[in-house]
């Protein structure tokens, strides 16, 4: 028996909004410790990893490890039926071929349940090595979304250059060039408005705008985002999911021929 109840159901709705454009289908691995999802996009350029800790749920029970393969478009359609303030419960029997979503209004006066068929997905699992990144940039998630959106007007790629002076995002194309520089903030009233740069060595890497823009669909999950970079390895874009976990996007760089 698997059962996970989340009073802050809107978090699960936001997680789906953050992955459904990138992934058509994916497996949710349910274990005693929580729920994880790892999947590559169709072109194998990026990888999404979602981690939801068991302690983050208001009720969590997973008697046996369970892999729930889901069509994410279908899951998203079902979660659209939940109101933002609904309590969401996911339930499945051991070895079941369906999962049930239960939505309860805060007053408990309306209860809906939706059953969805599970899929058998044969997905590659990748081992992600622990890495000490040369640069870790923390910035407001809305600012990052704005930068990606604005620079997408100029070209297909964004160059992210991190040095001790700050971080520079650049794009170039037919209409011209755009550069956005952010310096580390010296003092801020609110922690989530801060730009914090931890740098061991300067790094400059180039990434596809299309993917960065898809990652920013996670913006409603968290006021801050972190970008981790090292020379010649994938970028990690990480958002926390309330207090219950995090979503990480790994993006392979573009390399000059």
């Amino acid at each position: 028996m698997f059962e996970a109840r989340l009073v802050q159901g809107s978090l699960l709705k936001k997680v789906l909004d953050a992955i459904k454009e990138l992934l058509n289908e994916a497996s949710w691995d349910c274990a005693d410790s929580g729920i994880q999802l790892q999947a590559m996009d169709n072109s194998h350029v990026s990888l999404v990893s979602v981690n939801l800790r068991a302690e983050g749920f208001d009720k969590y029970r997973c008697d046996r490890n369970l892999i729930m393969g889901m069509d994410l478009t279908s899951m998203s359609k079902i979660l659209k039926c939940a109101a933002n303030d609904d309590i969401i419960t996911m339930k499945a029997q051991d070895n079941a071929d369906t999962v049930t979503f239960i939505f309860e209004s805060p007053s408990q006066e309306k209860v809906s349940d939706y059953e969805m068929k599970l899929m058998n997905l044969d997905q590659d699992h990748l081992g992600i090595p622990e890495t000490d990144y040369a640069c870790v940039i923390k910035l407001p998630s809305g600012e990052f979304a704005r930068i990606c959106r604005d620079l997408s007007n100029f070209g297909e790629s964004i160059v992210i250059a991190c040095s001790k002076e700050g971080v520079k995002f650049s794009a170039a194309g037919d209409i011209g060039t755009g550069n956005i520089k952010l310096a580390q903030t010296s003092s801020v009233d609110k922690e989530e408005e801060a730009v914090i740069i931890e740098m061991q060595e300067p790094v400059t890497l180039t990434f596809a705008c299309r993917y960065l823009n898809m990652f920013t669909k996670a913006t409603p999950l968290s006021p801050q985002v972190s970008l981790s970079m090292s020379p010649d390895v994938p970028l990690v874009v990480e958002y926390s999911i309330g207090d219950i976990g995090q979503i990480q996007y790994f993006l392979a760089p573009k390399i000059d021929d």
Binding site: S43, H44, D124, H125, G127, P234, F250, K254
Partner: peptide, 14 residues
């Protein structure tokens, strides 16, 4: 022109 790398050329299958 820069070419797009694939993510599975960095991480190994497990």
């Amino acid at each position: 022109k820069a070419s797009q790398m694939r993510i599975d050329s960095y991480f190994t299958s497990i």
